[in-house]
Design a protein around this nucleic acid. Structure first.
Lengths: 194, 194
DNA sequence: CGGTCTCTTGACGGAGTTCAAAGCTAGTGG
DNA sequence: CCACTAGCTTTGAACTCCGTCAAGAGACCG
């Protein structure tokens, strides 16, 4: 399991052997069952979770009382409520396993120690943050620029394999509309092709 | 001017004197006039810009041919198209001074050198990224959860002083609706108070 | 002061939501 | 291994929020 994380780190940064040994000593291995809550909203998010296998979502309950999905995470992604993790405040988000998930987790103390002692790992986590920030900015631009149908098309083209991995009502929530509307988009597409 | 940046750095990270001297040697000072383009879309974003004084916006031209504002930046903010800066590709965004701006800029080569040589500065830039990512995530949550009027209220409460610094049509663009609709929100508010 | 940029107002239109009901699918226990 | 149920998806009608278009009223700058 740890090998997979190390491979991921090496893709983005150069690290000393000693740093990896330190990393391994600070990491917790855990398996979550399908539908299990990894983090309940209102609690502190003590960990950053690296997904070795499986799929998760983060979501909150919106003003209308409906679950709003903010992010999905799959293999080789880090899942966390960064705001809660960094600022040590109650989490606005729930994190939940959507499939059985093998996860490597590191808590804040361990994370801070890694950052302090290993410039290679600090660099790796900085690059991960860069990627998240760039992805966030793109997403904000899509939300402003595209209609529902275009958002669906864009997501479909970028993640064709992911579509059948989660139920459609979750996909609809993540993309920012209702299951009914997603269903109508799909109908329109299938008719357009016939 | 550099003192202000150093004070900002010290707020978030501990750095050696030598690192600050290196930083100063790599920084370019420049003043932009009101309305001047700091970065035109389609060009590589070579710099990260630290705003010492003034106000900027980043925006793109959307599918309908209308300017869509993505971010504002004011004193003590870094402005850049991160995607273009990091991945060395053409920028999707324009960056423009909305007031006369004093700016400290660092290019990619200089930035990479700083990150490599100074763990204190690497830490500072990692923390800046953390803050941006957290702000992005909050913004995405607002966009999903709130109506136009609620988005306006939230922004107004978080940035009361900023409202009168930019024209309303830019504020409307940033918040994700038309100037006409923003005008109607304001009318409704003023009537509700009378 | 004259022109351009900005803000307001109102009528109309459309993308997406809400609500309700029916059809489908998959997991689960007997 | 079938039947039953709960959860998921589809459909359609009514509705709402916000955008579009057009016109007019201010406001700022040379």
């Amino acid at each position: 399991m740890v090998d997979q994380l190390i491979a991921h780190i090496r893709k983005f940064s150069t690290v000393e052997e000693a740093d990896l040994i330190l990393l391994e000593s600070l990491i917790r291995r855990k398996t979550y069952q399908k539908k299990e809550l990894v983090l309940p909203a209102g609690h502190r998010c003590h960990y950053q979770h690296f997904i070795v296998s499986g799929c998760m979502r983060s979501f909150f309950i919106n003003n209308k009382g409906v679950e709003q999905i903010v992010n999905f995470g799959i293999e080789n992604w880090w899942m966390t409520d960064y705001d809660s993790f960094v600022n040590e405040r109650a989490s606005a988000l729930n994190i939940q396993a959507l499939e059985e998930c093998e996860v490597l987790s590191i808590n804040k103390l361990g994370f801070d120690e890694l950052i302090r002692k290993s410039s290679g790992l600090a660099n790796y986590f900085r690059i991960i943050l860069e990627k998240r920030h760039i992805a966030d900015q793109r997403r904000i631009q899509y939300m402003f620029n595209l209609t529902g149908e275009e958002i669906y098309d864009t997501f479909f083209n970028l993640n064709p394999e992911f579509i059948q991995r989660v139920p459609q009502y979750m996909l609809a929530s993540y993309l920012g509309f209702t299951p009914e509307f997603l269903s109508k988009i799909r109908k329109k597409k299938s008719q357009g092709l016939s």
